[in-house]
């Protein structure tokens, strides 16, 4: 299918600023879904609040635009209640790791089959450029006029420590790599985290004199390097990109299935006559 078949065209042009990397992430994600040949009815995209979160309104999947930081908690309810669905959860850096930090580490700990995409532009864009837990020290923001003193999280290390079974990083400059990593993350059974370095030319770029979108993409190209590359070996200060973890680990919904089987078996032994049929009747309106 064409990429336009995966979006709700009536809401375009999208609302992000010119040159915002979030649009590129949307672009890459749609291509990943297309190349995997996924059924649109099988995908639920859950997002939180912020610039990043608006992504869910534009996709022609089931979409759940929720509360700041809570996307993964909502997604956990969707996934566990209907495990056959694919859950894509794009989040901003503040959304995922400040207000949503607890949900993030616990979703990773459970290894529930959800793909978390951290759209990391290192700033709160929608509220006007305040520093985030991924800004890092020495950065300017509208709440850090004298520069930040907060250290940033390393999303990759945090995700690994919390128990995610697939962890990767890419950038909006490296779009082909991005599509490839997203495909692997979506196919992965378990909690997958993809951090995508994105650019906010309007706030982060302007305040930190990093130039326009083009210059910020050039910066991503210069300051990152592929895992195992010569460039990274020669200069360890570069930010590594690629897949850091990809392991098989027990997935939460599958483990719960086993619990259900055990519970049903034990009860059947105790009360053999009890009927375990599905009680829910579906009703239809006549509208």
């Amino acid at each position: 299918m064409a990429i336009k078949d995966y979006i709700r065209q009536r809401y375009f042009p999208q609302m992000w600023c010119p040159g915002c990397g979030h649009g590129t992430i949307l672009n890459a994600l749609l291509r990943a879904v297309d190349e995997l040949g996924l059924d649109k009815n099988s995908i639920v995209m859950t997002s939180g609040i912020g610039c990043s979160a608006r992504i869910s309104g534009y996709v022609d999947f089931h979409s759940l635009h929720t509360l700041h930081g809570r996307a993964l908690a909502f997604a956990t309810g969707v996934k566990l209640s209907k495990p056959e669905l694919k859950l894509l959860v794009p989040m901003g850096d503040g959304d995922a790791l400040a207000i949503g930090g607890n949900h993030f580490i616990h979703a990773a700990r459970r290894n529930i089959d959800i793909t978390a995409i951290i759209m990391n532009n290192r700033i709160y864009g929608m509220t006007g450029g305040q520093y985030s837990p991924l800004s890092g020290p020495g950065k300017k923001a509208s709440t850090a006029p004298y520069t930040t003193i907060d250290n940033q999280f390393d999303v990759v290390n945090l995700s690994i420590a919390a128990g995610a079974s697939f962890v990767a990083r890419s950038t909006t400059y490296h779009v082909l790599e991005c599509v490839d990593i997203l495909k692997r993350a979506i196919q992965h059974k378990g909690f997958s985290v993809v951090e995508i370095l994105s650019q906010c030319p309007t706030h982060y770029g302007r305040k930190n004199k990093e130039g326009d979108a083009v210059q910020m993409l050039e910066f991503q190209k210069k300051t990152t390097a592929k895992l195992g590359s010569k460039a990274l070996e020669n200069d360890p200060t570069l930010i590594p990109r690629g897949v850091f973890v990809d392991i098989d680990a027990p997935e939460y919904c599958e483990e719960y299935d086993k619990i259900m089987k055990r519970a049903m078996k034990e009860t059947l032994q105790k009360e053999p006559l009890k009927n375990f049929g599905n009680q829910a009747n579906q009703t239809c309106d006549m509208a």
């Binding site: 040159g19 672009n27 291509r31 779009v175």
Partner: peptide
């Protein structure tokens, strides 16, 4: 790469082989 990087989904490269079905993959571009 223009099509892939465009944040606004505003550009599409139509080729002779793939025509309108746009089934080409990123491997083509690699």
């Amino acid at each position: 790469l223009c099509e892939l990087r465009c944040p606004d989904l505003a550009i599409e490269v139509i080729t002779e082989q793939s025509d309108h079905d746009a089934t080409s993959t990123s491997e083509d571009a690699v």
